[in-house]
Design a protein around this nucleic acid. Structure first.
Length: 866
RNA sequence: GCCGGAGUGGCGGAAUCGGUAGACGCGCCGGAUUCAAAAUCCGGUUCUGGCAACAGAGUGAGAGUUCAAGUCUCUCCUCCGGCACCA
């Protein structure tokens, strides 16, 4: 072992060794417990960023740790390869999306390999290959047959200039198309949906059981599913039938407030609105206006609450009063019945609308504990309340009134108790090119036929000229024209592709059997569920919910046996860094720190910065998530070149716990590099014969015992931090403590060397999941013949943890006044006596009476005196 | 608006079950080495007072429970994240 640590040499040497031995290839093995550790696979954008580094290092630490614990560990990697950026790049660079994507995959694979992560590369998957997507096409045809996939009209963003559908990401905050700048419109087209709502109840119930998931993610999923219990019932139309209907059906979670309904509101798409609009130009104009606004959340948010009276009245089934019906832009056709009863007294939104249109506000719920004035604001409490102004329901609390009204509505107004979900069926059609073709053929009457199993996959043509925004397959007769399955009739192919969440919803299962000649085979039941899943919290709802849904679908088709895909989930925080900018004309221009000269104040804080190229100052901005737009990214490859992958890995784990954000700091990286160089140096200086010496615990002196205790305390601490707490930062801190103590230890006796060798032997193994390359070399440096990846995780020697003496903290009235070294087995009385005799204690209780003495064995004595 | 999470030195953070607040790292200060610098090594570093021993203050603000509170309870403030016309 050389005395100077050279990361580049070490890392390429160790990686070659692993590669030559296929060190991380695994097969099913019933004799060992399995451990499937998975990181969310990347989109192949072409370059690795720090978020990837952090994500994959966490996975590798856990994988390597479990391997040393004796588990049969699977850690695969692949590519979420379909998606919009490939199309954007294609337009910009005039290359086919496939070529761009495969080139990026090659580049990123190389970059990833430099990090030395223990992947089983033989299982690599790219979702854009027909070998992968043919199975999801097959699966979709099964779902169509089971009625779990169906077609219906749905709203999309339509760019009137480009004459194309836009993804939500392609519509800016002002509701304009990204290329044309034209105002995006809403348009109804027929699209495919998966019936996730059929699984809403099971998904919700099992959310409660996912105790290996962060509470935040479970809460988000619960809210996203959004279960509510209420009643659906009719408001009869006051002047008889309209548009073939005699009533307006509504859904409410507050049947106890029906008496307070003073008006109603229906959606722009509601049949009643359409009926009235046919003879009323003003209403027609209003409906058109509603349809013009985009579907994006940003657009919805800005929407002002507006409405118009339809000139219709309905009868309140409880009060018998006539109430006017409005059309309003905030009523959603897709939730409930597309019509709502409005209770301005007890719903804030209804209250605002009532004020704006001068509608009556009626109080029907009274608080039993405070004064209520529904003229100013809605009263929405459901506890400590009684019903008033509600005839036979007066005097009931919320629960009783809910039940009584529901029973009444059941008899008098076609009422039905109903559970509603905020969750909608998952629209999987995308009018994009670079995705998996939906395997459907339409006959001349427009009926949909799933492509026959033997005709799969429907291959996406990759050799395409990409001229505009429109998908090239939509104009490709070779792709479109075919025959209807089972006939000789001409048929037309579906040209929409799947939402890319489709691919990422089942890839974790395919890794178990990437070469299977079926969607999955028995191997999936060996490896699944994933024991540990790691990725960004931005996927808390969509991806993680879709994957859970798919898992249940695959279970119900008989492909797998488990109910849930991911047993434990870790969501890592963002990687953040300083930003620097100039804002001369209202559009800030951001600069990367590498192009700046930074100034620091006397406390080491950044006080100013100037651009190297012109020497003029730039503004120091906030610390934000690394991104292209803020130009504050740090290139992982540059860091690996400078310090080595081990240093980069170690820093990414050391500075904060994984679920929190990590601030990238050059000084911190250098600190980790310094630490590794020190460990290397100490190990290289340890005499070769140190490994030969043995010791007997009973014969050790106090210093030797103390180092042994530190060694084994550290093993216990690091194990607990990785296994239970996920606090890799504190694990690293405690390894540094052990190193500091072991390197200061200067005892050249045989047993001294033996104890020191034990400390370094443990340290190297504890470090190995974090910094596997340097650990491998140091392991041989310590005189071991074996490869470190085949070693077992170090075990705690309980005997080494035993303390003869302990430090007792002495407090007077809760304030620390002294410390005492005591025998570890001293009695309570002895501790108390020693504490009361201590010099500084005597001084502090002088003139006071000791009221009470509290002894916490092994820790402290608190003397209460006044 | 609703639902989460978080506020601790100059900075990132530690304190795991109510028991020594500030581990570990960065930065800064001093020293050694050097012709000099970088690198490296050693020491110091919450604030105030003191040569020191030690004393006082201190975990966003305010109250409370307790022998003992960063940790538990209540009220409030600030920041971050998610959802947001869901009837």
């Amino acid at each position: 072992m050389q005395e100077e640590y050279d990361a580049t040499t070490v890392e390429s040497h160790v990686q070659d060794l692993w590669n030559a031995n296929d060190a991380f290839q695994v097969t099913e093995d019933e004799t060992r417990p399995k451990y499937y550790c998975l990181c969310m696979f990347p989109y192949p954008s072409g370059s690795l960023h720090m978020g990837h580094v952090r994500n994959y290092t966490i996975g590798d630490v856990l994988s390597r740790y479990k391997r040393m614990q004796g588990f049969n560990v699977l850690q695969p990697m692949g590519w979420d390869a379909f998606g919009l950026p490939a199309e954007n790049a294609a337009i910009k660079n005039n290359t086919a999306p496939a070529i761009w994507t495969y080139q990026n995959i090659d580049e990123m694979r190389e970059q990833l390999q430099r990090m030395g992560i223990a992947y089983d590369w033989s299982r690599e998957i790219a979702t854009c290959t027909p070998e992968y997507y043919r199975w999801e096409q097959w699966f979709f045809t099964q779902l169509v047959k089971k009625g779990l996939a169906y077609k219906k009209m749905a709203t999309v963003n339509w760019d009137p200039v480009e004459q194309t559908v836009l993804a939500n990401e392609q519509v800016d905050a002002d509701g304009r198309g990204w290329r044309s700048g034209a105002l995006v419109e809403r348009r109804e087209i027929s699209q495919w949906f998966l019936k996730i709502t059929q699984y809403a109840e099971e998904l919700l119930e099992e959310t409660e059981k996912l105790d290996g998931w962060p509470d935040a993610v479970r809460t988000m999923q619960r809210n996203w599913i959004g279960r509510s219990e209420g009643v659906e019932f009719d408001f009869a139309l006051a002047d008889g039938e309209l548009a073939g209907e005699s009533a307006i059906r509504v859904y409410t979670t507050r049947p106890d407030t029906v008496a307070g309904v003073t008006y109603m509101a229906v959606a722009a798409e509601h049949p009643l609105t359409t009926h009235v609009a046919a003879h009323n130009a003003d209403i027609q104009a209003f409906v058109e206006e509603c349809k013009k606004s985009g579907t994006s959340e940003a657009a919805m948010e800005k929407l002002e609450k507006r409405g118009m009276p339809l000139g219709i009245e309905a009868i309140n089934p409880v009060s018998g009063e006539r109430v006017p019906v409005y059309v309003a832009n905030f009523v959603l056709m897709t939730y409930g019945t597309g019509a709502v009863m409005s209770v301005p007294g007890h719903d804030q939104r209804d209250h605002e609308f009532a004020k704006k249109f001068n509608l009556p506000i009626k109080q029907v719920v009274q608080s039993t504990v405070e004064a209520v004035n529904v003229v100013d604001t809605a009263f929405t409490d459901k506890t400590n309340t009684v019903s008033i102004n509600s005839d036979q329901f007066d005097g009931l609390d919320f629960e009783a009134c809910f039940k009584a009204t529901a029973d009444f509505l059941a008899k008098e107004a076609n009422g039905d108790k109903k559970v509603n979900y905020r969750l909608r069926d998952w629209g999987v059609s995308r009018q994009r090119y670079w995705g998996c073709p939906i395997p459907i053929i339409y006959d001349k009457d427009g009926n949909a036929h799933p492509v026959a199993e033997e005709d799969l996959p429907v291959v996406l043509p990759e050799d395409v000229a990409f001229s505009g925004v429109n998908s090239p397959i939509k104009e490709d007769p070779n792709f479109i024209n075919t025959t209807v399955p089972g006939t000789n009739e001409p048929g037309i192919r579906e040209t929409d592709t799947f939402d890319t969440f489709f691919e990422s919803s089942w890839y974790y299962a395919r890794y178990a059997c990437p070469d299977a000649n079926a969607m999955l085979d028995e191997r999936a039941n060996y490896w699944l569920p994933v024991d540990q899943y790691i990725g960004g919290v931005e996927h808390a709802v969509l991806h993680l919910l879709y994957a859970r849904f798919f898992h249940k679908l695959m279970r119900d088709v008989g492909l797998i046996k488990s109910d849930e895909p991911f047993t434990r989930l870790l969501t890592q925080g963002m990687v953040i860094a300083e930003t620097f900018y100039r804002d001369d004309d209202g559009k800030p221009e951001y600069f990367n720190a590498r192009d700046l000269d930074l100034e620091y104040d006397d406390k080491g804080r950044i006080s100013g910065a100037t651009l190297k190229s012109d020497g003029k100052p730039v503004t120091v901005g906030r610390i934000e998530k690394m991104s292209k737009s803020k130009n504050n990214g740090v290139d992982p490859l540059e860091m690996i070149d400078r310090y080595g992958a081990d240093t980069v890995r170690l820093f990414s784990m050391s500075d904060s716990p994984p679920h929190q954000s990590l601030e990238w700091k050059d000084g911190g990286v250098e600190g980790m590099n310094r630490f590794l160089r020190r460990v290397w140096r100490e190990v290289s200086r340890l005499p070769a014969e140190a490994s030969q010496h043995v010791f007997e615990q009973a014969d050790l002196n106090d210093e030797q015992k103390s180092l042994r205790r530190k060694t084994h305390e550290t093993i216990a601490k690091v194990t607990d931090d990785i296994e239970r707490r996920y606090t890799f930062n504190t694990a690293i801190a405690s390894m540094m403590e052990l190193f500091n103590e072991a390197s200061r230890f200067d005892d050249r006796s045989d047993s001294g060397f033996a104890v020191q060798h034990e400390a370094f032997s443990a340290l190297v193994r504890l470090l190995s999941p974090f910094t596997p390359h340097i650990a491998h070399e140091m392991w041989s440096g310590l005189g071991y013949e074996s490869a470190l990846i085949d070693e077992a995780w170090p075990e705690v020697d309980e005997e080494a943890l035993v303390r003869d003496t302990i430090t007792l903290v002495i407090q007077v009235n809760g304030k620390r006044r002294a410390e005492l070294a005591m025998s570890a087995n001293a009695s309570k009385e002895e501790c108390e006596a020693a504490a009361l005799a201590e010099e500084n204690v005597v001084r502090n209780i002088e003139g006071k009476t000791v009221r009470k003495v509290i002894v916490v064995p092994g820790k402290l004595v608190n003397i209460v005196a006044n």
